[in-house]
Design a binder for these strands. Structure first.
Length: 471
RNA sequence: GGCGCCGUGGCCAAGUGGUUAAGGCGGAGGUCUGCAAAACCUCUAUUCAGCGGUUCGAAUCCGCUCGGCGCCUCCA
């Protein structure tokens, strides 16, 4: 098998992926801030981490995946206070919703979901370490990162700090900072924080945004781990600051590969909570879209390419999945005599194409083309009677293998007579078969039409078998 | 002001220097079928926003123009 190449934001090149420890991959994804329901744009990023995780596992790597839960920041505090409930209760509600959404979308669970509030000590130690090294300083109970003490600051994000435009948000921010571009590591307690604070060796307060990822990735993945993932909008400031913090404190590289996925657009623009132009998973489920249809749609397009999301695209997805479903059904129901080596050959060819595409910086669209070509090849072989019991087992195993990466080929939603024995429907199908045997076409069509009204589609297969499925 | 991305058939979307420009959706015709459904077959971009340049050769490299968009301390 060829090796995987990934576009590394660190080098801005396509780099061959070589894990730090042979056969093992340690990866970290910047997870959600649990102050509201995540929208499908957020899920595109998590879906991409899942795709990479699945493909690494497909290639035989033992993957250890950590995704943090940000449960302490301005918005979570504001939300909890607005409802007058403890921060933990407020954030748990959205964390649970997030886990449910991931499950619905068939996103592989991460091995660990550390919460920021459960790692305050680690963050405090990191701040102390930075202070000892003269990289952090205290001002009015808060601690700031002195970017002037980290010469490489700005390099990762390719920002020239001298020519940076200082926006209003920065200018209006904490004026006690030595340099307006310094960022908060620890925020000293203020009355508006209410009951949200920690009494620590560096004082009473709460952590800044970036320090949690430095602390938690260091704790669970160590120094210089393999892959760090996130959305492109995190390149600056979040990931730049993580690097400054971790590398400033440890003197070691934070991670070797940084992979960023592009945004999901809506109406040609960025989907974001602040613009209120987004769909949540529930919005789409309520409109009748199936989880796997949404998964397929969110996966569409290369991860480094912005992708426009539209209901229109879901319509096309539904038709594409129907094609994939019928291929699976064709294999399951094949009654051919077998073509032997031919089936192995076409699977080997398409699987090689699939791997070559995925190895090329996860070129998912091209990999999907290989899947559809396999579908055509298998359907054809099937129609030619080339799929017997042995070939069926080989074909199904191959489809399962592809699905370990894709996650939408097989699902409980694929309900046909093969996997579901609905007595009422089966009885009607039998009555129709009897009518057909008697060449009573009017009666046969009447039964088929009435089933169609219930969304049941019949297929008369060669050999006299009739199968049904829900539309 | 700085950094950067995109423009490929009716729609979505790969390809980024060299065989006939993947694949999906949609559309047209055909095979199969009692009729369907599904599947299969054929067709559906002489051309890659426009103009110039480099080259034996460009959708792919360079320049300009037009159009759309992202980041520059809330952000997936």
């Amino acid at each position: 098998m060829t090796s995987l190449r990934l576009y590394n934001t660190l080098t801005r090149h396509l780099d061959e992926f070589v894990p730090g420890e042979p056969g093992k991959v340690k990866m970290y994804t910047c997870g959600p801030t649990v102050y509201a329901r995540a929208h499908i744009g957020n899920f595109r990023t998590f879906m991409f981490s899942d795709l990479l995780r699945r493909y690494l596992a497909y290639k035989g790597y033992d993957v250890f995946w950590v995704m943090n839960i940000t449960d302490i920041d301005d918005k979570t505090i504001k939300g909890a206070h607005a409802e007058g409930i403890p921060l933990r209760d407020y954030t748990s509600r959205y964390a649970e919703a997030f886990f449910n959404d991931c499950k619905t979308l068939n996103i592989t669970p991460a091995d660990l979901y550390p919460r920021a509030t459960e790692h305050i000590e680690d963050m405090v130690h990191l701040v102390e370490e930075l202070k000892t090294k003269g990289i952090a300083y205290e001002a009015e109970g808060s601690y700031y990162y002195k970017i002037g003490a980290f010469p490489a600051y700005g390099k990762f994000a390719r920002l020239n700090m001298k020519e940076m435009m200082v926006g209003e948000r920065v200018a209006s921010d904490e004026y006690e900072k030595e340099d307006i571009r310094d960022f908060a590591l620890w925020k000293g307690y203020e009355a508006e924080d209410g009951d949200v604070f920690w009494e620590t060796s560096i004082g009473k307060g709460r952590p800044g945004w970036h320090i949690e990822c430095s602390a938690m990735s260091l704790r669970y993945l160590g120094e210089d781990f393999d892959i760090h993932l996130g959305g492109v909008d995190l390149i600056f400031p979040h990931h730049q600051n993580e690097i400054a913090q971790t590398e400033g404190a440890t003197g070691k590289r934070l991670a070797r590969y940084w992979v960023h996925s592009e945004h999901l657009l809506i109406d040609g623009g960025k989907m974001s909570k602040s613009l209120n132009n987004f769909y949540t998973l529930d919005d789409l489920l309520e409109k009748g879209w199936k989880p796997r249809e949404i998964r397929f749609a969110l996966l569409a397009g290369h991860y480094r390419q912005r992708t426009n999301f539209s209901i229109n695209s879901l319509e096309a997805v539904r038709a594409s999945l129907a094609r994939l479903d019928s291929c699976v059904r064709n294999q399951e129901l094949a009654t051919g005599s077998g073509a032997g080596q031919e089936v192995k050959d076409i699977i080997a060819l398409r699987e090689t194409e699939f791997q070559m595409a995925m190895d090329d910086d996860l070129n998912y669209p091209e990999a999907l083309a290989a899947v559809f070509n396999l579908v055509r090849d298998l359907n054809k072989t099937c129609a030619d009677g080339g799929i017997g019991p042995e070939e069926r087992a080989i074909a199904m195993a191959a489809l399962r293998r592809f699905d370990s990466v894709l996650g939408f080929l097989f699902s409980d939603e694929m309900e046909t007579c093969v996997v579901c024995d609905d007595i009422e429907i089966n009885s009607l199908v039998r009555q129709r078969d009897e009518a057909r045997a008697a060449k009573n076409w009017a009666e046969a069509d009447r039964i088929r039409d009435s089933l169609a009204e219930q969304g049941i589609v019949l297929e008369d297969r060669p050999g006299g078998m009739t199968v049904w499925r829900r539309k």
